[in-house]
Amino acid sequence: MLELRLVQGSLLKKVIEAIKDLVTDANFDCSATGLSLQAMDSSHVALVALLLRSEGFEHYRCDRNISMGMNLNNMSKMLKCAGNDDIITIKGDDGGDTITFMFESPNQDKISDFEMKLMDIDSEHLGIPEAEYHAIVKMPSSEFSRICKDLSSIGDTVVISVTKEGVKFTTRGDIGTANIVCRQNKTIDKPDEATIIEMNEPVSLTFALRYLNSFTKATSLSESVTISLSSDLPVVIEYKIADMGYIRFYLAPKIED
């Protein structure tokens, strides 16, 4: 038996919108810890890891660990039927082949339930070890989104370099080149608008902008984004989900020939 009641239902709507273009089908794993997901895009270049901790739900009942395969496009269709202020409850039975989404309007005058078919998904779970990153950049998520969008109109790939000067985003295309440097900026009252650069050693990596642009669909989940870079690891782009967990996107770098 599974019953998860999420008062801020819009969070679930946003999470699914953020990942549905990257991943078609995914297993949602439910345990005492929370609701989690790990999935790769079809070319295995990017990976998304989601965690919604049990404490973030108003009511959380998960009698035993279960994995529920869902088509994210279908899930999106159903969650779009929930209002932004609705409370969403996810209900399922052990071994059942469907899951129910219940939507309650804030003043309880409209209650809907949508039953969705589950699917069997063969997915390989990758072990992601804790790592020391060469550099970690925290910046406003809207700024990161703007940079990825702007650069993708000029080139296909971006070089992200962190030095003591700041973080530099560089692209090159048929029409020319572009460099955007963001410097550390802690001296503002609003911490969400700060750019904070922690650097253990300089790092420079090249990534496909197409994927980074896809990750920025999570921008509305968090005011800030954290970019963790190491020369021998995929970059991690993390959006924290208030009081609940995170959505992390991993992207494998381009490798020099």
Binding site: H44, A46, L47, E124, H125, L126, G127, A252, K254
Partner: peptide
């Protein structure tokens, strides 16, 4: 421009 890396080159299946 370099070739695109894949996740399995960095993380091993559990």
């Amino acid at each position: 421009k370099g070739s695109q890396g894949r996740m399995e080159s960095f993380f091993k299946p559990m």
